[in-house]
C-alpha cells in the first residue's frame, strides 16, 4: 500500500463521505416520518389509509433498493416525474426505510397493553392526550431496538446510490479503481470510511438500547 496514494485519494473520499452521510440521514429522516405515519394508520386500522399503507409496506419490503432506485430514477421520468439523482436517492432510501420503520413502530404500538389505554381513560384523559402522553412514548421505547437496526441497515444501503451515478463512497472507489488501478488503496479507504461511518452509529445504538431497557415500563 502506497501512503502517498492514500493521501492523494483522501479528499475525494471525504467529499463522498459527506454526500453519503447527508443523503443517508435525509433518507432516514423521511423513513422515520413515513414509518410513524404508516404505523399509526395500520395500528388504529383507519379505513382505506391502513390498506394503502399496508400495501406500500409490503411492496417496499419485498423489493430491493436497487430495483426501486432504477424505477424511480430511470423509469418515472418517462411518465413525466423527473428528479435529480440526489433527491431520488434520498426519497428511495426514505421509501424503503419507511416500510421497515413502520413494521418496527407497529410492533411497538401493538405491544403496549390495553390496560394502559383503559387506565388513562379512567383518569379522564382525552384520546389525543392518551396517544401522545401514554401510548406513543411507550411504543417508541419498545421499538428502539428495531429502529437502531433499521438505521444501520439504511446507512449500509446507501452504498447502492452509486448505481444512479451519485458520487458516494462506492462510486468514488469504483471510479478510482477504473482510473488509476490502485485497487488496494481504493478498497482500503472504502472500508475505512464505512467503518468510520457505521461503528459510531452502532455503538451509540447499543448504548441507547441499553438505556431504554432499564426504563422499560408498561409492557
Amino acid at each position: 500500500m502506497d501512503p502517498e496514494v492514500l493521501i492523494d485519494y483522501f479528499p475525494r473520499y471525504a467529499e463522498a463521505f459527506l454526500l453519503t452521510v447527508r443523503l443517508g440521514f435525509t433518507g432516514i429522516f423521511i423513513a422515520f416520518v413515513l414509518g410513524i405515519v404508516s404505523a399509526f394508520f395500520m395500528h388504529f386500522k383507519v379505513p382505506v389509509l391502513s390498506q394503502f399503507f399496508g400495501g406500500y409496506i409490503e411492496v417496499f419490503r419485498n423489493t430491493p433498493l436497487l430495483v426501486q432506485l432504477f424505477f424511480i430514477y430511470f423509469g418515472l421520468p418517462k411518465i413525466g416525474i423527473a428528479t435529480s439523482a440526489e433527491v431520488c436517492g434520498a426519497i428511495g432510501l426514505g421509501l424503503l426505510g419507511g416500510s421497515y420503520m413502520a413494521e418496527g413502530f407497529r410492533s411497538g404500538l401493538d405491544a403496549v397493553s390495553v390496560s394502559q389505554t383503559e387506565s388513562a381513560l379512567a383518569l379522564g384523559m382525552t384520546g389525543g392526550q392518551i396517544f401522545f402522553n401514554v401510548i406513543f412514548p411507550e411504543a417508541f421505547t419498545l421499538s428502539v431496538p428495531a429502529i437502531v437496526a433499521n438505521v444501520i441497515f439504511l446507512l449500509k444501503e446507501t452504498s447502492i446510490f452509486s448505481a444512479i451515478s451519485l458520487m458516494d463512497l462506492m462510486f468514488t472507489a469504483k471510479d478510482l479503481i477504473g482510473l488509476y488501478y490502485n485497487t488496494t488503496e481504493a478498497l482500503f479507504l472504502l472500508v475505512v470510511f464505512y467503518i468510520v461511518m457505521l461503528i459510531p452509529v452502532s455503538v451509540a445504538g447499543n448504548l441507547i438500547e441499553r438505556k431504554v431497557r432499564y426504563k422499560m415500563f408498561g409492557a
Binding site: S159, M170, V191, Y194, L198, I199, S202
Partner: peptide, 8 residues
C-alpha cells in the same frame, strides 16, 4: 461482515 455493506 454485518457492519460492511454487501456491495463493499
Amino acid at each position: 461482515i454485518r457492519i460492511m455493506p454487501q456491495m463493499v
